[in-house]
């Protein structure tokens, strides 16, 4: 037995020291060190995502169907109330596809941000007792949001095929770009807000309100043409509108998935012109993506700075 002990001791004496904890934050490692640590824990990330998905509908008989029922109900509400009663469908061809495309990409963003914000506080038990790279919790929330998005996305694609509106064009390339932008901003805010929420629980309520506001500030249930053509709107307003990165992502996603938006269609004898997509959408998307990446790095740094005190503040 003592030989096992001696072997262990000899092996340990050859290992270099690593920092367990330090008052000097730079000793913990920078952005890339954090990424490396996360990569080393990717198996755990995978398990946490599964845990979240499995546990969510564990004892319900409809299970995963629930993650579809909510967006489909929203679609129904907007289709009937805004499309038919308020008459938006008369100006927007294939209104159902239009709304569902917007709801799908928006759902991804809002779920990442709201579930991400809660992720550190709701895993308090683990954070107090075990050392793990803490970014793993907002990322697990992102993973489960992505799963729900994938389910909705397949319904959307299926619907476009059934209705004969599957967009076969180069515009389809906007779809992955839109998803990437939503992921960048979603993760950046999820990381930042999850850390702030530990210190100030008001954040989670603020996020709820902000998401509601942002939903109506993005062209999801109304088309971009309505913003551009609205009477009495000062000409600078659409530009302010486009400062919101998520609006750009939503527009790109619609341009990709909603074929009718790029064609001239006839509704009740009235011809509807194609959407006045922002002329420099490609450039805007590139800028939005670069700004988002910088934001992501900043948010991760802030998170890193705040996470040292998580265990005692939760």
């Amino acid at each position: 037995m003592s030989s096992t002990a001696q072997e262990r001791s000899d092996r340990l004496s050859t290992l270099p020291f690593q920092t367990s904890s330090s008052s000097d934050e730079s000793a913990i490692g920078g952005f890339w060190a954090s990424i490396r640590e996360l990569l080393a824990h990717r198996e755990l990330l995978d398990l946490l995502i599964r845990r979240e998905l499995k546990a969510r509908y564990k004892d319900s008989s409809l299970g995963f169907l629930w993650s579809l029922i909510k967006p489909l109900t929203l679609l129904l509400i907007y289709y009937v109330a805004i499309g038919q009663f308020l008459g938006a469908a008369r100006g927007i061809p294939d209104f159902a596809i239009f709304v569902f495309a917007g709801l799908t990409i928006w759902g991804l963003y809002s779920e990442i941000v709201s579930a991400g914000t809660m992720s550190i506080v709701s895993n308090a038990g683990l954070i107090k007792k075990v050392y793990l790279p803490r970014e793993i919790f907002p990322l697990a929330a992102t993973g489960s949001a992505l799963f729900n998005f994938a389910v909705q996305m397949s319904v959307l694609i299926l619907a476009t095929i059934v209705l004969g509106q599957f967009p076969v064009s180069w515009n389809l390339l906007y779809v992955p770009v839109a998803i990437a932008i939503v992921l960048i901003y979603g993760i950046a805010f999820a990381i930042l807000l999850s850390a702030l929420n530990v210190y100030l629980r008001d954040i989670q309520y603020l996020v709820e309100v902000a998401m509601l506001l942002l939903f109506w500030a993005s062209p999801i249930v109304y088309a971009w043409s309505y913003v551009v053509n609205a009477v009495d709107v000062p000409s600078w307003l659409p530009n302010v509108f486009l400062l919101n990165p998520i609006s750009n992502a939503v527009l790109a996603f619609q341009k990709g998935m909603w074929q009718a938006g790029s064609e001239t269609r006839l509704i009740d004898g009235v011809s509807i012109l194609p959407q006045p997509w922002p002329a420099d959408l490609d450039l805007r998307l590139a800028i939005v993506a670069v700004v988002g990446l910088v934001l992501l790095i900043i948010c991760q740094r802030v998170f890193q700075k705040l996470q040292g005190n998580f265990a005692q503040e939760i």
């Binding site: 020291f17 920092t19 904890s21 330090s22 008052s23 000097d24 934050e25 265990a311």
Partner: peptide, 10 residues
């Protein structure tokens, strides 16, 4: 699990 205000643990 907790970072100190001063010093290092290796």
């Amino acid at each position: 699990i907790i970072q100190p205000n001063d010093g290092v643990v290796e």
